[in-house]
Design a protein around this nucleic acid. Sequence first.
DNA 1: CTGAAAGCGCTAACAG
DNA 2: CTGTTAGCGCTTTCAG
Lengths: 350, 350
Amino acid sequence: MSAPTVYDVADRAGVSIATVSRVYRSPGSVRSETRDRVLKAARALGYVPSGSARGLASRSTGVLGLCFPDYADPDAEDSPANGDEEMLYSDEIIRGMERAARRRGYALLIAASLAGGPENLVAEVAGRVDGFAVLARTVPTESLEVISRRLPVVMLAGPREIDHLDHIEVANHDGQRELTRHLIGDHGYRRLAFVGGEAVSPDAEARFRGFRQACEEAGVEVPGQPDVRAEMTQAEGRRAAHALLDRPGEPPRAILFANDQMAVGALHALEERGTRVPDDIAVTGFDGIPLGRLVRPALTTVRQPMRRLGEEAVELLVQRLAAPKREPVSLVLPVTVMRRASCGCPDPQL
Amino acid sequence: MSAPTVYDVADRAGVSIATVSRVYRSPGSVRSETRDRVLKAARALGYVPSGSARGLASRSTGVLGLCFPDYADPDAEDSPANGDEEMLYSDEIIRGMERAARRRGYALLIAASLAGGPENLVAEVAGRVDGFAVLARTVPTESLEVISRRLPVVMLAGPREIDHLDHIEVANHDGQRELTRHLIGDHGYRRLAFVGGEAVSPDAEARFRGFRQACEEAGVEVPGQPDVRAEMTQAEGRRAAHALLDRPGEPPRAILFANDQMAVGALHALEERGTRVPDDIAVTGFDGIPLGRLVRPALTTVRQPMRRLGEEAVELLVQRLAAPKREPVSLVLPVTVMRRASCGCPDPQL
DNA sequence: CTGAAAGCGCTAACAG
DNA sequence: CTGTTAGCGCTTTCAG
């Protein structure tokens, strides 16, 4: 009545369970005649090997995992009008990991952290995989600390919170510096404002430092802190834009946002106010989300290679699985400045 | 030296392994003092419950699966220029399933079918999950036949190849009929050409039938077969467009493609020939892929609710898990005609 | 090349 | 509320 097991197959094929196991694990080590008999029996019975039993006995699952934050955007329901544009990081990372994992013979288990108890989430994933990647700030450091003692973990797109972990980040500093240089050097903007994230976001801070460096190099007045700090959402970006323009004194010629989401929000805010972008004020983001191409003007930004992030994550995991005690690795992936219309560059329009 | 188990935790906490298990499975059934002791020991040891052992003992994994075809597009590598636009079905379905699964307390295991041996793939997935969804034509019917005897399987976006399976499809027929009515009724086009898929694609066939019905209703001459059959890729769409225009006699006023990919290819072909879209020839697709919005002119199409497809898949699986012997369910999800520039409608330009 | 036997780490009755 | 006791289905030596 219940699912057939190796025993059922073995009985039917007139062999031992060990042989059934071998047929699946190392077909070469079984006489082809015997093998066929087993396979036939298996098919007749509808036998499907139990991954759990396999995992338990062999102490390895053949699965890699990914934990990412719950980006669920409450006001972005499945209306036909939107829906596409909200492909976020996680999707691209998932694609990258899925592809790489497949190449390496692994399956991919994905899980977004519930608002409720992320603690639980990691454990859940950790127990089912041979190793996994975590998007920065998805999982409490302490949980990771514990788990990473038992299992390869690679930290993605964030600082190495735990020093014995492999980790991959993108060139936040350099990217923002390049973009800023473009704004100053090519467009001649010198009245710049930077909208950062909360101070706890190392990415946003690195971007700010890149911004500062470019400013200093160009002899542009440099603020010690971002002009505004916000939560890195569209709503907050919008608010930041208003705040910046309502500020006494001359408005900035260009506003650099620490991410695309905020920049898009700002675009809306500026449109509401009748401020023209990029003629009155230039706007830039950071990340390279697809939405940035769909807004008008298209958003100039720094593109993070998220797909590659996912691929590299798998490579790192696979390597660490093979050499558990090798020194922790730290990769920095290059980014690309995407010049689009919102900074004053001509829009390639597709 | 190896990973700590319930035994280690039990020892350290001075309880039995059963109690350790209970602390995780039903915390309420353990005195809070005992529970704390166990939790403390677990933390100290770096204990992570083994999903495999759990799965084996409880005969359920808490994981749902998704098998989809390997859409990997060889010429679409991770260049910064593209990359976004290739979000295909699978991504949206993954998102939908992930969200729904999370709500239901499941994790999601995803696996694309290798070009090589898909047979293996399903078994791999099937052995590790409580149930899974399959995108149509990803897995050989016979494998599914066998596996679905043991495990809930829901077929996505295709015909119910196996009659005892739950399945979800979209309103291919109705969608194409609506779109065709729009072309005939609102734009007055009457010289229509339809580019279908290979005859084995039930989706494409259903769309063609919808097309025919609308034509008949309007008294427009109806071909018994698609004007061209192609492989539903951009390259083939391009070829189909050329073929249609090189055909003797008057060229069609509008070309309806059975999917967006082909339509996009055609757009390129027409541009090459200097044929204006929609002025000389209108073009429409089917699916609603993001790329359709990025091309110029933006592609008029029929949007499939892929995200919802994923969500419904999870619901169906959860329901079937709860009631294994209920009658197989078959859902048809509604689609939406997206009127954009390529059919002659004004482009909302975002 | 094949079989026998010993677990892998956990859950699930069943007692207490 | 907690402990005992069987397995869950498969891999893996170790013999033969």
